[in-house]
Amino acid sequence: MTIEITRSGFVRGLRATLPLAIPVAAYGAVYGLLAQQAGSTAMEATLLNLFNFAGASQMAVLPYWDHPLPLLTIAVTTALINLRLVLLTASLRPWLKSLPARIVYPVLHNVSDESWSVAMMRYRLGERDVGVLIGCNMAVLFAWFPSTLVGFLLSDRIPDPERFGLDFAFTAVFAAMLFAGYRSRRDLTPWFASGIVAVIVWWLLPGTWYVVAGGIAGVTAAVLQAGGQPKVEIPSAEEVR
């Protein structure tokens, strides 16, 4: 199968991720406001948006934002929160591996949980155009960047996103992608294994170890379930709109 990157794929990715624009922008504004209140500047936040591009970790380090900044605490917090990204891009290997490194490695920089979940579910439904992944990534980026700056313009308060249930938006996206990707009962064993292990590790360990543990538990369960049989992937005509 040839892997291509097309403009129409890019547009499909953008469109597929469009519903996430509102919650992403809401949290972008919250981040901008919190960063401002913590004594950070719009330039600092923008540099982090450009080069770190991982909002959860940027929010998590704000409580430590007192100069001189505690580098070690910030580094450990960043590592704990962003550990999950290892599994996200690991799972992209089968899709991207035939592309040259000079294309793949820049694309990886903008992979986020939300764009990855939308793109991966389309991959599962037979999508192979890498333009889709890039479009998904860019949709999140386009919603995030300007909204963080809006957060810096807000001098006082903005309504708590929790009031509107927007804190649930990202959970809802992931849940939707899970339901969209459900194929057969064979999916249930790895999913249950992942869910149970994730909850246990989430109680026990800080950061996102629980995502890593859940992912590994799910794959282990799938391998045990397969019992050496080659897996047959059944492509579906059904599309996530």
């Binding site: 991966m120 899970l178 909850v199």
Partner: peptide, 28 residues
């Protein structure tokens, strides 16, 4: 065999993102 199991990685990671977050949010 492991390669086939890895095709379940995205679903497993997404499950791990959903379940603790849903429990943390409570009944709603």
């Amino acid at each position: 065999r492991v390669e086939a199991g890895l095709s379940y990685l995205p679903g497993a990671v997404i499950t791990a993102l959903v379940v603790p977050a849903a429990l943390e949010a409570g009944i709603e």
